[in-house]
Amino acid sequence: MSTAQTRVAMPRPWSAETQRPARNKVLRGIIKHAVLICFLLIMLYPLLWMVGASFRPGNQTFAGLGIFSDTYTAQNYADGWSVGNLNFSRYFVNSAIITVGAILGNLVACSLTAYAFARLEFRFKGVLFGLVIATMLLPQHVTLIPKYIIFNQMGWVNTYLPLVVPHWFAVDAFFVFLMVQFIRTLPKSLDESARIDGCGHWGIFWRIVLPMSLPAIGTTAMFTFVAAWNDLLGPLLYLPRSDLWTVSLGLNSFLDQTGQSTYGTLFAMATLSLAPIVGFFIASQRLLVEGIATTGLK
């Protein structure tokens, strides 16, 4: 495959701007920025409002549609942080442990599985891949009880294991499928040349496919982070003991249908809980979208 050779030689991703004359380019740039910023302002209004509301005194949380207000206070942050038996620093640590465990598990297990389905020939491959897809088609609510019974029998309730271990067994078919699709966009000629250099399947997987799948890995890590970090039902069932609470359970405790809800502190802590995800996103998006360019392989 000759294209593969040229791709290796041309690592820079293509961009619409490269060929434009200068004057035109500036104008186009301004228009693009304007469009993006308008769109962003509309999209981010609810979040900006939430941040604004988190700095208002407790009984003025819903005082209006404006983002700014007359009085600002950090009281919600102080109150919110110290909520519960422990406080949010503990919940952040708990969430982080689960999230890291889930991400590592998904990366290892899903990439191994995806490599087999994308690159290897074996008997019953079609049937087994059908099984991968089929596991995504059943609403998870109806398998919740039998799963709970299994984990309860194993004595795993009130441990992090039910929220981490399944990820090490590639139960998230979504990511297996995603990685299969990514890997299948890679030219197979690279495998062949590696094979000629004496690589086995493990070598091809480790030296060729994984490095070239960095965008898929970044995407998987990011999506797993968001899903694990925001998960409410899992921790609710498996981590009832309050010293094991995650951030999402902590947030949920600000709302009480039967008593008093404190939306101000909820918004404050919800704002803080976004910080790690945003941080992770900014850190991982180099991998996510620049991956191909930086590895220089494609």
């Binding site: 038996n85 919740l144 009880i145 709970y148 019974i149 309860n152 029998q153 309730v157 009130n158 409410l232 609710l236 069932l237 009832p240 003991r241 309050s242 359970l249 949920n252 405790s253 709302l255 009480d256 249908q257 039967t258």
Partner: peptide
Amino acid sequence: TETQSADYAQYFNRLNVQAASQSLP
């Protein structure tokens, strides 16, 4: 003691799952 709490609706969701596996608090 080990304490468990949740908002009203979530509390009963969890209670029912615990009841299904004979592991109510």
